[in-house]
Simulated scan of single mutants.
Amino acid sequence: MDIGFIGIGSMGAAMVPNLVKAGHSVSVWNRNVEAAKALEGVTVLTSPAAAFEHDAVITMLSDDAAIRSVIMDSGVLASARKDCVHILMATISPAIVEELQNLHRKASMAYISAPVLGVPAVAAKGELNILAAGDADAIAKVQPLFDVLGQKTWHLGDDPKRANVAKIAANLMITLAIESMGEATALTESYGLKASDFLDIVTNTLFASPSYKRYGGNIASNSYEPGFKLTLGLKDVNLAIDAAKAKHAVLPAAEIVRETMNQAIDQGLGSKDWSALAKVTRHRAGLAEGVA
């Protein structure tokens, strides 16, 4: 398949090589052109509009503002191929997804929301979980791409917003897991049981899941080198809270996590992995390790 790819951050850079290896023709546009040039086996595009001259376009931009600037305000959809399928795999708000649906409808082209669960290392192995929602025929057309990028595609119906809400809710659950591990280890360490010993138990029994293991390991070793940046995690928590407010719902625990993440950013941890919010949680509980 002939693919346009927009946005080469850490996730995009991990995904594109798998598409190339699978024999797809991939053309890439990125605001930082050097990041696009660093990828092997791709054609570097000079504009995002050129990406929409292909069979399918995968967009992996960082947030609502980037989507609005590159896709919506630029007018690229007006000149797009009508048989092109646009797959937007970024974590964005349901509100902007609704705007995107309307714009694609006016342009008479297919739009699919397909955010992913997984970090760049998982993407590099082609083991993402893909949350797909949109027109069933369009999804079927691009399913071969999903089969290359992920270990499973979760079909969530014909409303694209469902996929984005699922991704936002999943990321919110990760932040709550990190908060809970921070509090729980503050408790155990106050009684002399090391965080590493306690987390070894729970991440291999009650909470034996990839997220608990990955971020529990960071907490146990007090090492928070960048993986998924805390500032991006805060963006996703804000998306969850805003999406809830749009439906007159309240997320009390999300508000607590947002406060903790804001404190972590104020203390210089914004560029660390989002599990660094546990440092603030543990410090707030009275542990002597403090924050770095």
Rank of each mutant, 00 (worst) to 15 (best):
G9W: 07
A13Q: 13
M15S: 02
P17E: 04
N18F: 01
A22V: 07
H24P: 02
N30R: 06
R31K: 05
T43R: 02
S47L: 12
A50Q: 12
A51H: 08
F52L: 14
H54L: 03
M60D: 03
L61R: 07
V70G: 06
I71P: 04
S74R: 10
G75E: 08
R81Q: 13
K82H: 11
C84M: 11
L88K: 06
A90M: 03
T91G: 10
P94K: 06
A95P: 00
A95E: 14
I96Q: 03
V97Y: 00
E99L: 09
Q101P: 00
H104D: 07
R105F: 04
S108Y: 04
M109D: 00
A110G: 05
Y111E: 03
I112T: 10
S113R: 14
P120T: 08
E127P: 06
L128T: 10
I130P: 09
A138H: 10
I139Q: 13
A140P: 02
K141L: 08
Q143H: 10
L145T: 10
F146C: 14
D147L: 12
V148L: 08
L149F: 07
G150H: 13
G157Y: 09
P160W: 09
V165D: 11
I168F: 10
A169W: 11
A170Y: 12
A170E: 09
I174H: 14
T175S: 15
A177E: 13
I178F: 12
E183W: 07
L187Y: 14
T188V: 09
E189S: 14
E189N: 12
S190F: 02
G192S: 12
S196D: 07
F207A: 14
S209W: 04
S209G: 14
Y215R: 15
G216K: 06
A220M: 06
S223C: 09
L230T: 13
L232G: 02
L232Q: 12
G233P: 06
L234W: 04
K235W: 07
D236N: 08
V237A: 03
L239I: 11
I241Q: 02
D242Y: 00
A253D: 02
A254V: 09
E259A: 14
M261T: 00
Q263H: 11
I265S: 03
G268M: 11
K272T: 03
D273F: 01
L277H: 01
K279T: 09
R282G: 05
H283A: 12
R284C: 00
